[in-house]
Computed example of a mutant assay.
Amino acid sequence: MRRMILACSVLLALSTGATAGQIYKWVDSQGNVHFGSQPPEGQSSATVNPNVSQPKVAPPPPPAPKSEAKDEKQEELDREAKDQVAKQDKERKAYCESTRQDLAQMRATSRLRVEENGELRRLTEEERQERIAKSEAAIKENCQ
């Protein structure tokens, strides 16, 4: 058993020397790069060090500290945007409610009157149907 361990140790020690041989690099006449354990005859070659470590990557820089002035300004902009969205939403809801009420009235009454140039005029059935269609389209587009 001791002889076996001794033989394996000697073989292992000798094998590291065989893998640590010189590596050559050269470029042929077509521009192709070659690597080998023997330098080419009649061409210049360079030795390559295979034990080159990978370059260390620098850690990313730490995030810049946020200034409180920027945070306050951003918060103010966010509040203004939210207020504007809420105002637009409120106006849209009021428009939808008004349009729905007008549509319900147009459907319920066949005799509709409109004021033109200070005088009341009765709408024809075609005009009434056209206004109903426009109101339905507006509700479908803006209110659902």
Rank of each mutant, 00 (worst) to 15 (best):
I5L: 15
A69E: 15
E130D: 03
S67M: 09
T109S: 13
C8V: 15
E126T: 02
S44P: 00
I139D: 08
R92Q: 05
S135P: 03
G42E: 13
P59H: 10
E136T: 07
C8D: 10
M106D: 05
V114L: 09
G42K: 12
A86L: 09
Q38L: 06
A46W: 08
V10L: 15
A133K: 06
A58N: 05
E91N: 04
Y95W: 10
I23S: 07
A58K: 12
A46M: 13
L120M: 07
A7I: 13
A94V: 00
E91D: 03
A18W: 15
I132H: 06
E75L: 15
E115I: 01
P59V: 12
E75D: 15
I139K: 09
A94I: 01
G42P: 07
V10I: 11
R100T: 06
D102I: 10
L14G: 04
A20T: 04
E116F: 06
E41A: 15
G36V: 04
P60M: 10
E130F: 01
A58S: 13
N117S: 00
E126G: 02
G42C: 05
T19C: 12
E75Q: 14
R3W: 11
G118F: 00
D102Y: 11
G42H: 06
N32M: 14
S44W: 00
V33W: 01
L103H: 05
M4R: 14
E119F: 14
E136H: 12
Q74M: 10
P50A: 05
V114I: 08
D89V: 01
Q22H: 03
T109F: 03
A20R: 10
P39N: 03
E76R: 15
Q105T: 06
D28L: 03
S44E: 00
A104N: 01
Y24W: 13
L6E: 07
C96P: 01
A7C: 13
K134M: 03
P40Q: 11
K25W: 03
L77H: 13
P59T: 09
E141R: 12
L11P: 02
V10A: 12
P63L: 08
M106N: 06
D28P: 04
A69Y: 12
E127W: 00
V27H: 11
L112A: 08
T99D: 01
V52Q: 12
A104W: 02
I5A: 09
E116M: 06
T99H: 02
C8T: 08
V10Y: 08
A13N: 07
H34C: 02
A18P: 02
G31S: 04
T109I: 10
N51R: 08
D89E: 11
G118N: 03
